[in-house]
Design a protein around this nucleic acid. Structure first.
Lengths: 214, 214
DNA sequence: CTCCTTGGTAAGTGCCACTATCCAAGCACC
DNA sequence: GGTGCTTGGATAGTGGCACTTACCAAGGAG
């Protein structure tokens, strides 16, 4: 198919597709002649993935490029490849100042990992961006004066561990390795907004259940 | 305290605080004379909340203003007030086109709510932004050709319902109504990045556990 | 009295995801 | 074989947003 058809079938404007091509988010089509390039189903699929990441996942363009680079890198093992792809995803920005709250939060998270028995964590996870993000979130809570029970964090972690197990079970259902990695990235990118939506719906439901509409 | 101290204690630059004052995210200080205004602990607390929403929660400034308006609105009941605050929070943008995937996703989500017995949902939730976001996420998955079991969604929903119950238990521990609402907003704003971080950490852990570092 | 600081305002900056405009080279139809 | 529309490609511009800089008049301190 040509650019116009790719645009129509994906619902992405031609100008935007050109932009993605320029930014290296999409491989160039097979050049037929000086004024025609041919695109195929793979391009369409990749374009939809890019769109999903940018629109639903709110992933910056530069990050999408990085993530896709890892997804396409056949030389990596699965855990590393998945990790590489996930690590590239944006989360909370790096804190500018190193204060007491941050240090306390780090100790708290370390204790959490120990309690959970996430042993792989100690070696690998402590350099993961997700670890940093978690520390920042905990520190922010503390800074605002909230003082919850450490058990709450453990409970949340157990829940998310169950969710992660569901994710990976789903990933398992895909035969090829490339599809697995793509599914895993989507699991991070799309499942998260889904979980977030479900979380808020559940809050509304539970709030109405407990308090009615008083 | 004066602006300079407010800035120092919050870690937010004076220029930025002035910007927030202008944007109505922060109440003006008590004007002592033409060149001096006095701020108190409430200002500091509110400023930190604003910062948390913007930096950790990535909430746009205009939305923060809206959410705070609801938080401060004493005339509303709790569920409504919480709902109003949560509904103002940004999620996935409104889809531009109404296609078959979207309609199918809507039916699927409706079925999900029925299965879960979230009866309050049917009346209220279907107009909630979270409902829309969920529909968009499901539709996006389908559009990409992923075809999971409906039971997976139910499992995720049950997990998030448990998380929501934990949130509300935590909110319950706060005595005053104003604090409860603020805690609830934070529960949405800060717990979500925390859950997200935990989700990714859990994925890394579980992936390493299943596959090692092959 | 002089100089520094304060709060307030208006205009500017940097980033980012597009988007509008051009352009030369086909291709399609007469 | 001409003519006009379409195509892919490049460059520059746009709009939104979260700040930030520059400036101002009015205090207050020494």
């Amino acid at each position: 198919m040509r650019l116009a058809e790719l645009s129509e079938r994906s619902g992405v404007s031609i100008a935007t597709i050109k932009y993605y091509l320029r930014e290296g988010l999409l491989a160039p089509g097979r050049q037929v002649n000086a004024t025609t390039a041919e695109y195929d189903e793979d391009h369409l699929r990749r374009l939809r993935l890019v769109r999903a990441m940018i629109q639903v996942g709110r992933v910056p363009v530069a990050t999408v490029r990085e993530v896709l680079g890892h997804v396409d890198d056949d030389s990596l093992g699965r855990t590393i490849r998945l990790g590489a792809a996930l690590w590239a995803l944006p989360q909370v920005p790096e804190p500018d100042t190193e204060d007491e709250y941050l240090q306390a939060a780090r100790r708290e998270v370390d204790r959490l990992l120990e309690t959970l028995g996430w042993s792989n964590a100690r070696a690998l996870i402590t350099i993961s961006p997700a670890y940093r993000s978690l520390v920042v979130a905990v520190a922010t809570f503390r800074r605002l004066g909230y003082d919850w029970d450490a058990g709450l964090l453990v409970s949340y972690a157990r829940l998310m561990h169950q969710a992660a197990a569901l994710d990976l079970d789903f990933v398992e259902t895909h035969p090829s390795e490339a599809e697995k990695v793509e599914a895993a990235v989507l699991g991070a990118i799309l499942v998260e907004p889904m979980l977030q939506s479900l979380h808020r719906l559940a809050q509304e439901e539970e709030s109405a259940r407990r308090y009615g509409f008083e």
